[in-house]
């Protein structure tokens, strides 16, 4: 890929996005450089696996490059990228049985069985939550999205999201407490 002009690194994002929309690969690389920590961290919360997280994040950027000409407003790149990332994760979960294809809403919340000897961190505790609950919790706490934004992004009903976040938070607190966490 050609070397990016030095001023790309300091350019406003909307400008870099506009250049990428015109097929400038160097501009897109600059967007990857800027956005990669956010996308990779999001997938780390989702998956509890740095390797899988990086692979998923790469897929997201590949998809973003393929579809960037469809982006209507350059200044909405961040939200658009987040939507691709969440859809990619939901698709991945469906393919791997984490989220039932039929409905994201029906989830039985029970404390998952975990070994008490195991040191548990946030990602491991998140991994113990049912997939749709984890999705809502991560989008709420990690991405700071409102309930309605999560509903719009995931297609899950608003009431279900509220319930997932309330019960998921309780479960997460219990899991973290059980292992001597600070919560």
């Amino acid at each position: 890929m050609p070397e990016a002009p030095a001023y790309y690194a300091d350019g406003p994002e909307a400008l870099i996005v506009s250049l990428a929309m015109r097929g400038d690969k160097s501009a897109f690389s600059e967007l990857v450089r800027r956005r990669q920590p956010g996308v990779r961290n999001l997938f780390r919360r989702f998956s509890n696996s740095p390797e899988l997280a990086d692979d998923m994040a790469q897929r997201v950027f590949l998809k973003a490059w393929q579809r960037i000409r469809q982006l209507k407003h350059a200044d909405r790149f961040g939200g658009w990228l987040k939507k691709i990332a969440v859809n990619e994760w939901i698709d991945y979960q469906r393919k791997h049985g984490g989220i039932a294809t039929t409905e994201l809403d029906d989830v039985q919340l029970e404390a998952p069985p975990v070994s008490t000897s195991e040191a548990i961190d946030l990602d491991a505790a998140l991994a113990a939550l049912p997939a749709p609950v984890r999705l809502c919790i991560v989008l709420s706490y990690h991405e700071n999205l409102s309930h309605s934004e999560i509903a719009e992004l995931t297609g899950i009903k608003l009431g279900t999201i509220k319930s997932h976040i309330r019960r998921g938070s309780e479960l997460l607190r219990d899991l973290l407490k059980a292992y001597g966490g600070s919560v």
């Binding site: 920590p37 990779r40 961290n41 919360r45 990602d123 706490y141 997460l172 607190r173 600070s182 919560v183």
Partner: peptide, 13 residues
């Protein structure tokens, strides 16, 4: 408390 935990988990990759 959970919010603080999430914020601190955000690593600079």
């Amino acid at each position: 408390a959970l919010q603080a935990l999430f914020d601190s988990a955000e690593t600079e990759l």
